[in-house]
Design a protein around this nucleic acid. Structure first.
Lengths: 194, 194
DNA sequence: CATGAAATTAACCAAATGGTTAAACTACTT
DNA sequence: AAGTAGTTTAACCATTTGGTTAATTTCATG
């Protein structure tokens, strides 16, 4: 890919993730990329299209490589644990992502509706198999989904609030998230293992 | 309070909650309030001040009337359960609030830092009492806070995503949240009760 | 009714912002 | 060297937007 295009995408990602669509300025993206503002339009035509490009990529990453995990030969609860650990690790690298993605699904649900998404089926299927075999407690699948995603993603959505509430620094927070991986697995086992 | 002022505040609340600070237009607020745009400045001077007025009120409500609950004579876990039920009920009435508040803490942490906030102390105190008496499992207080708030608030932060993932309607979602109250209490007991 | 303060409006303003354009520069081909 | 297509830039444009102003309306009070 073109070097300029690459620089633009990097800059756009940073700016959009930090300030959201409405809070982002094309000039700010150009400045960060170290190029003329007209280049943005030359390569991506409009703010909307540039944003769409970034959002689609982020959206797809927010529902993480769950396929691999859920295709393993393994108990449902073990899959959940592996998922949780991987996912929290991923979010430690991408702490802004959840708030960014949720904001934009919220802002433009119709657009998001057309993006590919096969997470729930995989999870549901694995769950049903194990619940039949008596390996897993009965729950409403929707509640499982909410609970597991919440255990992993909520701390990152609430990061600024948590540092506020706890008087914690950024380092403290990331330390807490390292510990959260064990906490998450423990909670998942307690809640769902039979 | 002045009737016009009231109308402005109502309109501003709706617009800001839905579109955020950057996405909101003073003209949109004036239109919704059915008044001239200049009135907004007459009563509130600037967009910043009007927003601040709304945000402060919402911020204070996001950390809900926890004082009353936590001053009851009761086991820690029972307090958590009562809190969860009350809080989810409150969020059912105010589903947009969590995303709004978190966004703006994130955007302007320094401002939020100066707002009053005594939730963690109350919770911590009650927790320590019970853990000493052996009535409650050992946990890191920060993890308890994250977990309990997440159980309650995450579904609302993720509302648009959840309706997307589950193919659910708004009614379906609110039905799910009604059930969430029981689910939350069950989870809290399993996780924290000894 | 007259008066003066408060409330309200239409018109206006300056800055910011997404986007365009025409010229200039670069690099490759013949 | 000349031509050409792609790339980059400075200057510009139209619209939007937060905010102001001066004039008008409302309304309670003497």
């Amino acid at each position: 890919m073109n070097q300029t295009e690459e620089k633009i995408l990097e800059a756009a990602e940073k700016v959009f993730l930090k300030h959201g669509y409405d809070g982002s300025r094309m000039q700010a993206i150009a400045d960060l990329a170290g190029i003329n503002k007209a280049m943005l339009h030359y390569y991506f035509r409009s703010k909307d299209l540039l944003f769409e490009r970034i959002f689609k990529e982020k959206f797809s990453r927010f529902f993480p490589a769950i396929e691999e995990t859920f295709q393993l030969e393994m108990h449902f609860v073990d899959k959940l644990c592996i998922f949780a650990e991987k996912y929290i690790d991923f979010l430690i690298q991408n702490p802004y992502l959840p708030l960014f993605v949720l904001n934009n699904i919220n802002k433009n649900p119709d657009f998001s509706k057309n993006l590919p998404l096969n997470m729930p089926q995989l999870l549901l299927q694995s769950y049903l198999e194990d619940v039949e075999k008596g390996l897993c407690k009965m729950h409403q699948p929707a509640q499982i989904l909410i609970t597991v995603l919440g255990i992993c993603a909520f701390p990152f959505l609430a990061k600024p609030m948590m540092t506020l509430l706890l008087g914690a620094s950024d380092e403290d927070f990331f330390e807490l998230m390292q510990q959260r991986k064990e906490e998450a697995k423990k909670q998942i086992r307690i809640l769902f293992e039979v």
